[in-house]
Simulated assay, not measured.
Amino acid sequence: EFLDTKDLMMFLEAEQGMAHVTEVISLDVIHKYEPSTEGQEKGWLSLDGFTNYLTSPDCYIFDPEHKSVCQDMRQPLSHYYINASHNTYLIEDQFRGPSDITGYIRALKMGCRSIELDVWDGPDNEPVIYTGHTMTSQIVFRSVIDIINKYGFVASEYPLILCLENHCSIKQQKVMVQHMKKILGDKLYTASPSSEDAYLPSPDLLKGKLLVKAKKLPTNCTGLEGDVTDEDEGLEMPQRVGKDGVEPQTVGTVKRIQLCKELSELVSICKSVQFAEFQTSFQSQKYWEICSFNEVVASKYANENPGDFVNYNKRFLARVFPSPMRIDSSN
């Protein structure tokens, strides 16, 4: 059983979708993949040779050009989809499972460019990471920063966003700052955004940089600390979608926490703010401000306000986090 050059030509055209196939091309395939000397001499492709060809890189569905970066990476950061991880530290379920630094190693090796750090006061004045109000275990903040420093740019040289949910006291916030500055050093991008620009810098300009996404003190704050709304996903999007579109919905009193100036100053072009409505954002949101959307709300915007949502994402970064109904850690 074998294919001659004409049989192979028909297969390449009809099944592989190749255009302008010639006998020369068929012979090239035979000479490259046919294991027997007789087959190569007579221009036959045996079953083994055919198998070799089908399992070779020449038949991969994956475009080999995409093994390296093939897109234009000089556009504003908001023009790209970003490979993101939610509750990166959880390696099992979202309520009782263990927290482990291997979650960060795995995410970073897979090329995630946005990871999450849920930080709370820990024992011995060392901040810890875990999901508050759950039975998940804790890991030391400093060890996660070490992992980020080691693996942050192994899979990709493009910027890594650290989504920092800060629930710490002022005292332990200062410890967080000390660890980040000492371990991460000049990898931290802290340059003040220019009011003359209209868009975020490009991934190309931000290579090797860590962007801290968190709350930031207002510019008129002159003290060493001030208060901001709590960076809590349960409070981040208190919204509902009504018959006439998206309307804000107040759910109780928004909790406020104290934020030290040193931690605030680590936030540059990913300042967390709360979303109100599209027209408000178009008129007053700064390009360096980022809103978080529950996936249910984001889905409704995409279906009911697609034009506004697309235009919003051209100008601003938008972080979409999973519904609380997702209890596994598959993402």
Score class of each variant (00 low, 15 high):
residue 259 L to N: 05
residue 236 E to K: 02
residue 146 D to F: 05
residue 253 T to Q: 12
residue 262 E to C: 05
residue 159 P to W: 09
residue 160 L to S: 03
residue 203 P to G: 08
residue 247 E to S: 15
residue 151 Y to R: 06
residue 152 G to R: 06
residue 253 T to I: 13
residue 217 L to G: 09
residue 171 K to Q: 13
residue 280 T to E: 03
residue 196 E to D: 10
residue 224 L to W: 02
residue 218 P to Y: 03
residue 155 A to K: 15
residue 190 T to A: 11
residue 258 Q to G: 12
residue 228 V to Q: 11
residue 188 L to V: 15
residue 189 Y to Q: 00
residue 193 P to F: 08
residue 257 I to T: 15
residue 224 L to R: 01
residue 153 F to K: 11
residue 270 C to N: 04
residue 147 I to V: 15
residue 277 E to L: 12
residue 151 Y to V: 08
residue 200 L to I: 10
residue 204 D to W: 07
residue 217 L to V: 00
residue 269 I to G: 11
residue 211 L to V: 11
residue 233 E to F: 10
residue 238 P to M: 12
residue 148 I to A: 01
residue 212 V to L: 14
residue 224 L to C: 09
residue 265 E to I: 00
residue 192 S to C: 11
residue 201 P to E: 04
residue 234 G to V: 13
residue 176 M to A: 13
residue 184 L to V: 11
residue 173 Q to Y: 11
residue 268 S to D: 08
residue 244 D to H: 14
residue 168 C to Q: 09
residue 197 D to H: 08
residue 192 S to Y: 10
residue 189 Y to N: 00
residue 245 G to C: 10
residue 203 P to A: 09
residue 272 S to G: 02
residue 236 E to H: 02
residue 161 I to A: 03
residue 276 A to R: 09
residue 238 P to G: 01
residue 205 L to P: 03
residue 161 I to Q: 03
residue 272 S to E: 06
residue 157 E to G: 13
residue 167 H to A: 07
residue 166 N to Y: 07
residue 206 L to C: 06
residue 280 T to D: 01
residue 267 V to I: 04
residue 167 H to M: 09
residue 170 I to T: 13
residue 266 L to H: 04
residue 180 M to H: 12
residue 188 L to T: 14
residue 282 F to D: 04
residue 200 L to K: 09
residue 194 S to R: 04
residue 217 L to D: 01
residue 280 T to Q: 04
residue 163 C to A: 09
residue 201 P to L: 01
residue 174 K to H: 10
residue 213 K to E: 02
residue 282 F to M: 07
residue 219 T to E: 08
residue 272 S to C: 01
residue 276 A to M: 03
residue 213 K to T: 00
residue 220 N to K: 01
residue 167 H to G: 05
residue 277 E to G: 13
residue 164 L to V: 05
residue 222 T to Q: 08
residue 220 N to G: 01
residue 233 E to G: 07
residue 225 E to R: 06
residue 175 V to H: 15
residue 266 L to Y: 00
residue 256 R to D: 05
residue 217 L to S: 09
residue 182 K to V: 00
residue 253 T to M: 10
residue 229 T to S: 14
residue 160 L to N: 05
residue 185 G to A: 07
residue 219 T to K: 04
residue 261 K to V: 01
residue 236 E to G: 05
residue 247 E to T: 14
residue 214 A to I: 04
residue 212 V to Q: 07
residue 166 N to R: 06
residue 237 M to W: 06
residue 148 I to G: 02
residue 147 I to F: 01
residue 218 P to T: 03
residue 176 M to L: 08
residue 212 V to S: 01
residue 260 C to W: 00
residue 158 Y to D: 13
residue 163 C to S: 12
residue 249 Q to K: 10
residue 184 L to M: 13
residue 267 V to D: 01
residue 227 D to M: 13
residue 149 N to W: 03
residue 262 E to G: 02
residue 250 T to P: 05
residue 147 I to G: 02
residue 256 R to G: 07
residue 254 V to L: 13
residue 223 G to F: 03
residue 246 V to I: 11
residue 236 E to L: 13
